[in-house]
Design a protein around this nucleic acid. Structure first.
Lengths: 169, 169
DNA sequence: CTCATTTTGAGAAACTTTTTCCATTCTGAG
DNA sequence: CTCAGAATGGAAAAAGTTTCTCAAAATGAG
């Protein structure tokens, strides 16, 4: 065996039109039975079940979750936080990434290109909680500039990715 | 019946510690059986099932979905878009909200307080697709200023809200 | 304490998922 | 074209889960 290629446990077939349909259905409603999904994508339950298993094994489907209403549990405030740093070392980033990732209020955290170095979406109950979070953030690692922008109204929020149509070969 | 209060179909009891635990578990893994969830929150399956049913009926649990890996389906680019408008009329907002909500690339869309009027998180396959999206956005309604910030690295992204501990009465 | 109300849990019925096994379709070498 | 081998599809049975029914236990107002 001189081949260097690692034998992956995944089936690395490209996603066909039916796989994409299954993903669209499951991104919208993961409580459907396999038979119902099969109906919608034009498959009986066994092959549909096998495709879903493969999509999970291949990591295309990451997990199944319940989505909770932010307001019903008293989390009224969403804040977009832009961060600029003067330290661009690996060590600084590692420490910052670890500290921020551990904060449950942070729902999204990206390293950016351009004027802003990092971007966070933070969810808290009220202004007082935001202040607690803010102090925690600025005391975690040295930061050059932090800008907080508060959301007044959530107009759209989805978890379903826009699955691209199959590209013709 | 002179009472003006509408009889809601919901049970409007406040969430207790067990309800919150159930929500934490389901936000992380909605593929667990009711018996397994019951075990984790200290309940047998029937009462656990009833609480989940109530949380769904009350709209605390909005839906159950599958989360898909953005990169595995070829959606490599995340963009945060800040929008400023010069028109602040209801009619303009209605048109803008409808146009943007209908765009599948837009995963989040908030009306903001402060310098930026709107904030969008957009997901696309490549720069060419972003340009198509951008042109679609600026041609939908008149906009004063649009700033696109590109994500280089997704450091954290979760759908699980930080469920606050029960406040002592 | 007593009663009405709410919450809980055991078990049975209905339904779903998962497995087994076989038929069909597709692919590419000869 | 023709065939072997692989991949995909499907029916039906087995295993597991959800959902429902009913009665016991807990709670709390009077």
């Amino acid at each position: 065996m001189s081949d260097l290629a690692v034998q992956l446990p995944e089936t690395n077939r490209r996603l066909d039109a039916i796989d994409r349909k299954i993903l669209m259905v499951l991104q919208d409603d993961a409580s459907l039975s396999v038979a119902e999904i099969g109906d919608r994508v034009g498959l009986s339950s066994t092959p549909c079940w096998k495709r879903i298993q493969r999509l999970e094994a291949d990591g295309v489907i990451l997990k199944r979750v319940a989505l909770v209403d932010q307001n019903k549990i008293g989390l009224g405030i969403s804040v977009f936080v832009s961060v600029e740093s003067s330290d661009h070392s690996d060590a600084w980033l590692k420490k910052f990434a670890e500290a921020v990732s551990a904060m449950p209020e942070v729902m999204e955290f990206y390293r950016m290109a351009g004027d802003v170095d990092y971007m966070l979406r933070v969810v808290v109950a009220d202004m007082q909680s935001y202040d607690v979070f803010y102090k925690k953030l600025i005391s975690a690692v040295p930061l050059k500039n932090v800008t907080s922008r508060f959301a007044m109204e959530k107009i759209k929020s989805v978890t379903a990715l826009p699955i691209p149509a199959v590209v013709a070969a």
